[in-house]
Amino acid sequence: MDSLTQIVLGAAVGEAILGKKIGNKALLYGAIAGTIPDLDVLANYLTDTVTATELHRGFSHSILFCLIVAPLLGALVNKIERRYNLGLKPWAQLFFWGLFTHPILDAFTTWGTQLFWPFQTRLAFNSIFVIDPLYTLPFLACTVALMFYKRNSKTRRKLNQIGIIISTFYLINTVVIKYAVHNRFEKALNEQQLSYSKISTRPSPMNTVLWNANIETKDSYLIADYSLLDTKPISFTSYPKHREQSQAIRKHPKVQRLIAISNGWFLMEQKADQWYFYDLRFGLLPKKDQTESFVFAYTLKEDNGALTVQEVPKSSEDATYAMSVLWQRLKGN
């Protein structure tokens, strides 16, 4: 999830654990704990694109990381905040749960988390987008409001409980909606007599009303969207795999790593002697010039056997236009 959401979740966890004893300091240290796992983005400045992508939501989002880092941070803050005389254990508990709830929430997104690192299994329930105002804003309102009450106030505890309950209920509800939408896509495929081997569904940006689906067939991928407000049948668009043309470059180790990152949901295309790799899991981005591109696209540049991978940048103008298209599509077909 986005940084603000993780800060709010971490602050609420900190409040639940130590708010009654240390007041707003519990919110502060909980927010810090909720932020720490996402420091893995620093890898973008320290290593190449493929490695940084592999590291994202890896070790820093694992149970092992929480078990190692929580007592270290607990010991450090216990020294800094000696006046509370709490000892190591309460601080370690605050940091553990602040760190641990971060990857648990991220597991509901499309990218998922390697919670059981060093095992490569990535948990990705695909039920909530990385930014969802309906999850974050009520939670944020409760967390901000409780700050104005004394640490031993019953209202303060009640507000924190309400924020946690509402956000948790919403998160569970996204799974229920996903199940219903997934069945709707499968029904449409069967009605249109389209054979397939795999299907993956996920919500579109910032809502759980409009959903996207990737469907794998023998020679192509079918991509479709479905709004809970739709009245017309689902329409599927086919994107040929063209695996034969990309056979040679696909053997390169970096391309193999990109394929692993995408969980096999990928297309490759050559345009003007330039190869592109598309990660299909995050859907298409409509552009102002009436074309569209995949949200995560990479250029592959070969030079004497070496391969340089770079992510294709996305413009703010296209992002703004895409949101307007999304809003119109969300209202139904």
Rank of each mutant, 00 (worst) to 15 (best):
F266Q: 04
S153P: 12
H182L: 11
F277A: 13
F185I: 01
R151L: 11
W275I: 02
M147W: 13
P138Q: 01
G163N: 03
V181H: 00
K251L: 03
T237S: 15
D230F: 05
V209G: 01
T136C: 10
L140S: 05
N214Y: 10
S246I: 05
I234H: 02
D273Y: 04
K154S: 05
S167R: 01
T168V: 09
K198T: 08
A188C: 08
H182I: 05
T168I: 07
N183P: 10
L229I: 08
P133E: 07
N173H: 12
T237G: 10
S220E: 13
F266A: 10
I199N: 06
I162N: 08
D132Y: 12
F129W: 11
K218Q: 09
R156S: 07
F277Q: 03
E191P: 04
L267N: 11
L189K: 05
L258Q: 01
N173D: 14
S197D: 07
Y170D: 12
T174V: 00
Q274H: 11
V175S: 11
K178A: 04
I199W: 06
T174I: 02
Q270E: 15
K150E: 15
L267W: 10
S235K: 06
L171P: 12
P133Q: 06
R250V: 06
Q270P: 10
Y226C: 00
N214W: 07
P253S: 01
I165P: 09
Q274K: 13
C142P: 03
I162V: 11
P138G: 10
L137W: 06
N173W: 12
L134S: 14
Q161I: 11
E269A: 10
T174N: 04
F148C: 01
A141N: 13
H182M: 02
K154Y: 01
W265I: 09
Y239L: 04
I259V: 12
E216S: 14
T136Q: 13
K271G: 03
D132V: 14
L137C: 10
T231C: 11
I131C: 07
K251Y: 09
L258Y: 04
K150S: 15
P240A: 03
V130K: 14
L194F: 05
D132C: 12
Y170P: 10
R184N: 14
Y179P: 03
Q274G: 10
P138K: 01
A141I: 15
V209C: 11
F169T: 14
Q245V: 00
L210R: 04
Y221W: 09
Q192N: 15
L137D: 02
V255C: 06
H252C: 08
I166K: 01
Q274R: 13
T168H: 07
K251C: 00
T155M: 05
A141F: 15
